[in-house]
Amino acid sequence: MNAKGTVHKYGDDVNTDVIIPARYLNTASHAELAAHCMEDIDKDYVKNVKPGDVVVAGKNFGCGSSREHAPIALKASGASCVIAKTFARIFYRNSINIGFPILECPKAAEEINPGDSVAVDFDTGLITDETTGRTYQAQPYPEFLQKIIKSGGLMESIKG
C-alpha cells in the first residue's frame, strides 16, 4: 500500500473542530464533510487538495472532540494520509477504524515543506520527500493494523 502526492502542511494542535467544524456534523455525507474539511484553518484546502495528497503537521494532530468525522473528512477530501510529529490517541484510533493511514515521524513533520511531493510506503513506513530527495523512517503498522487499513476500516476487515 502506497501514497504519493503534494504536501499540505499545518502546525501543532490541529484539533478536530478545525479539521471539520462542528457546524457540519449534522450530515452523514462524506462528500459534504469533505467539502468543508480544514476550512477554518485553510480556506483553500478543498480547492487545492488532489486525490493522493498528503497532510503533514506538528504535534498532537487531531486533538479535541473524539469524532470520526475528522478522519472521514480528510479521507473523503482526497488526502491519502497524515504524517505528524504526534497524534491525539482518539484520532489515531478513529483513523484506523475508518481505514485512513496516519504516520508519526517527527523529523519528516519538521523537514517536509508545503508543496513538496511525498511518497509513502505504508508497509515499510518509508517516507520519501521526492522534492528534496530526503527519506524518513516511520514505524510501520503491525500486520493486523495494515490489514484493517487495507480493508478500508475495522468493519470491512471483519466481514467474512
Score class of each variant (00 low, 15 high):
N2C: 03
V7S: 09
V7P: 08
K9H: 06
Y10G: 02
D13G: 00
V14G: 00
N15W: 01
T16K: 07
V18M: 11
P21D: 12
R23A: 09
A28I: 11
H30L: 03
A31P: 03
A31Q: 15
E32Q: 15
L33H: 09
L33G: 02
A34W: 06
H36E: 08
H36Q: 10
C37I: 04
E39Q: 14
I41C: 15
I41S: 14
D42A: 14
K43R: 15
K43Q: 15
K43S: 15
K47F: 15
K47W: 12
K50N: 14
P51R: 11
D53W: 13
V54R: 09
V55N: 10
A57V: 03
K59R: 15
N60D: 15
G64K: 06
S66C: 11
A70P: 03
I72E: 00
K75E: 10
S77Y: 07
G78W: 06
A79P: 03
S80V: 04
C81P: 05
V82E: 02
V82N: 02
V82R: 05
A84T: 00
K85N: 15
K85W: 14
T86K: 04
F87G: 02
F87W: 05
R89K: 10
Y92W: 15
Y92Q: 14
R93P: 10
N94M: 04
N97W: 07
I98R: 01
I98G: 01
L103W: 04
L103R: 02
L103Y: 05
K107S: 13
K107N: 09
A108K: 09
A108H: 09
A109Q: 01
E110A: 12
E111C: 10
N113R: 14
G115E: 10
S117W: 00
A119S: 14
D121W: 00
F122H: 08
D123V: 03
T124A: 06
L126Y: 06
I127L: 13
T128W: 01
D129W: 02
E130S: 09
T131W: 03
G133D: 14
R134S: 13
R134D: 14
T135A: 04
T135Q: 14
Y136Q: 11
Y141N: 05
P142R: 14
K147N: 11
I149T: 02
I149W: 07
S151Y: 08
G152V: 06
M155R: 08
